[in-house]
Nucleic acid binder design. Structure first.
Length: 575
DNA sequence: GCCGTTTTCGGCCCGACTGTTTTCAGTCG
């Protein structure tokens, strides 16, 4: 079951959309959008707050607070239901089509009675849109195309996919003679766990040749928009990429602007307005006479607004602006803080690289310690046996003297439907460290899943719960136990939760990390590498960890080896 | 509907591009 904050935020967002569609006051619609963001980003459970507590959340006043109380108390929101009665559900879905907003959706419904995407397709193909004000032949074609794109891609891609595209484009544009600077911004720079589109920023006195080169790159499938300051394309694989070219002196303001998020930028601009300033992608200006104040670096822009530079991974309007203003931004964990990897595989089970190859790659990467954690015997397809595991341990001990990277022998246990694991205490005691993960029976009830994970945490030999939600981005939904109960068990037992860095997992995600951290949980950022090339995916896990506001103290694999060993020993001793 | 280091009323972030318009509305980020 979704947490109350998400339920409330979804209702407020729907209410805002319906106000827009029905032609209501646009400022009222924006108020509810803002309230939805406020609720979604609020750390406390809204179900525990009274009217007064709710009104403390930015963007929520008396009227919205009353609607929230009504929704949580009765499961209904009368004002929302009233609008729902006026607008068929399908009309709101029309807004998901690129190029179709509330105004056009309303026109289609009012003039033609269209109430679903399917009906819209039929209407366009029958030529019923011609003559409708604002709907020319080109608009009709664009809508059909938008529906095609929507149905085909579903929108977002993995961060690893987007990064590869971005790096290719940045390299190509950087090589152009007139290009002074070029990099990516947007959600990719913020390290989101999936990417809707890629934003590229370039600095040049002469934008036109750069725009032209961009539109003609081999990976371009179609050009969506082409102007002097901005060009948008879709790649052959369906990923949208926007290029903005700005003057060199605007670089900082432009980076700030195009990194976003939209919500963060609104928050920052509000501060600017209050100081009699105006912030755009071209710089920070005095409102009264448009005189430029600063624009060259992000540090200057934030600085002039009375803020320290805010790391991109925090820029989601989740309290970072207030924290910055009060000088309590966290010292975020970075890749340089990571001393070792605690969840990796070899070809003894489903990895593709040998033990020796994995160790060599890890040494090259500079790890101080490294845990080999192949699958345990209850994963039948892995054909693991006690003897094979013990043989690997002997080999690892022999290799231990060869370098300054300490070697830990571990395993990735399988958490069975009842919360048990592959081996008894006697055998488990021989491992230096154990990860335990769910690999099957994802459809248990939330109560069963909760018990299962809590029981795994209570096992004195389980040090890390691997990929806790088991989600595969775009392919498998996360399991939904009572997370707060699981987090409390992890914190109480000294069990770390994994931030699995594999790009199709990124599990836990940022929001669960924040919730877990507030309950005192420790984390391990692991690659879950199945080959030597996977060791570098840690960077994606670092991004997600930063988005969860994690500091080195929160992450056990930034600790020194003695400290890590005592964390493990303490749990065993407590049993 | 919300909000206040100019404000309890009158504002509400800002600019680019497209399509359809003859000066601008709608959409997007």
């Amino acid at each position: 079951m979704a947490r109350p904050n998400e339920v409330v935020a979804a209702a407020l967002q729907e209410y805002a959309d319906l106000i827009s569609i029905t032609g209501g006051d646009p400022f009222r619609a924006r108020t509810y959008e803002k309230a939805a963001r406020g609720v979604a980003g609020h750390s406390a459970d809204v179900a525990t707050l009274d009217l007064k507590g709710l009104a403390q959340i930015p963007g929520i006043g008396k009227s919205t607070a009353e609607k929230i109380v009504e929704l949580l108390g009765t499961g209904r929101m009368a004002a929302l239901e009233e609008l729902r009665a006026k607008v068929p559900a399908g009309v709101r879905e029309l807004m998901a089509i690129p190029g179709l907003g509330p105004a056009k959706a309303m026109t289609l419904h009012r003039e033609l009675g269209i109430a679903s995407v399917d009906e819209l397709v039929v209407a366009i193909e029958a030529g019923r849109l011609s003559g409708l004000r604002g709907f020319g032949a080109k608009t009709a074609a664009n809508i059909l195309h938008g529906i095609e794109v929507l149905r085909h891609s579903g929108g977002r891609v993995l961060i690893s996919t987007a990064l590869a595209v971005a790096e290719e484009i940045v390299a190509a544009l950087s090589a152009l003679p007139g290009c002074e600077r070029c990099t990516y911004a947007g959600s990719l720079r913020r390290g989101r766990d999936s990417i809707g589109d890629v934003d590229i920023l370039a600095a040049s006195r002469e934008p036109e040749p750069i725009m032209a080169a961009f539109a003609e790159l081999p990976l371009v499938g179609e050009v969506i928009a082409r102007g002097p300051a901005k060009t948008s394309i879709r790649t052959n694989d369906g990923l949208q990429v926007d290029l903005r070219v700005v003057p060199h002196e605007s670089w900082g303001a432009a980076m700030q602007y195009f990194t976003g998020s939209k919500e963060h930028n609104i928050r920052v601009r509000e501060i600017a307005v209050r100081k009699g300033l105006k912030l755009s992608e071209y710089g920070l200006f005095r409102a009264e006479d448009d005189e430029l104040v600063v624009s060259a670096t992000e540090e200057e822009v934030y600085g002039r607004l009375g803020l320290p530079w805010i790391p991109p991974t925090l820029r989601e309007d989740r309290g970072e602006v207030a924290a910055a203003r009060e000088g309590r931004l966290p010292r975020l964990v970075t890749e340089a803080d990571i001393r070792g990897d605690l969840h990796t595989h070899t070809d003894l089970t489903d990895g593709v690289s040998t033990l020796e190859e994995m160790l060599a790659a890890a040494r090259k990467r500079g790890h101080r310690y490294y845990a080999v954690t192949d699958h345990a015997k209850n994963m039948p397809m892995q054909r693991m046996t006690d003897a094979k595991m013990l043989a690997q341990r002997r080999r690892l001990r022999e290799l231990a003297d060869q370098g300054r990277m300490a070697l830990l022998h571990g395993t990735e246990l399988n958490i069975d439907p009842d919360g048990g694991v592959d081996w008894d205490a006697g055998f488990l005691a021989g491992f230096d460290i154990c990860v335990a993960s769910i690999h099957s029976h994802f459809t248990q009830t939330p109560a069963e899943l909760t018990n299962r994970l809590v029981k795994a945490c209570e096992n004195p030999y389980v040090n890390i719960i691997g990929h806790p939600t088991t989600r595969l981005i775009g392919r498998r939904a996360p399991i939904e136990p009572d997370w707060d109960a699981v987090f409390d068990a992890a914190a109480a037992t000294g069990t770390a939760l994994e931030v699995n860095a594999f790009p199709d997992r990124l599990d836990l995600n940022d929001e669960l990390i924040m919730r877990a951290r507030e309950r005192g949980v420790k984390f391990a950022i692991d690659s879950d590498a199945h080959s030597t090339v996977h060791l570098d995916v840690l960077r994606f896990g670092i991004g997600v960890a930063q988005r969860g506001w994690l500091t080195p103290a929160d992450v056990i694999n930034t600790w020194t080896l003695p400290k890590l060993r005592s964390f493990i020993a303490a749990k065993r001793r407590a049993a």
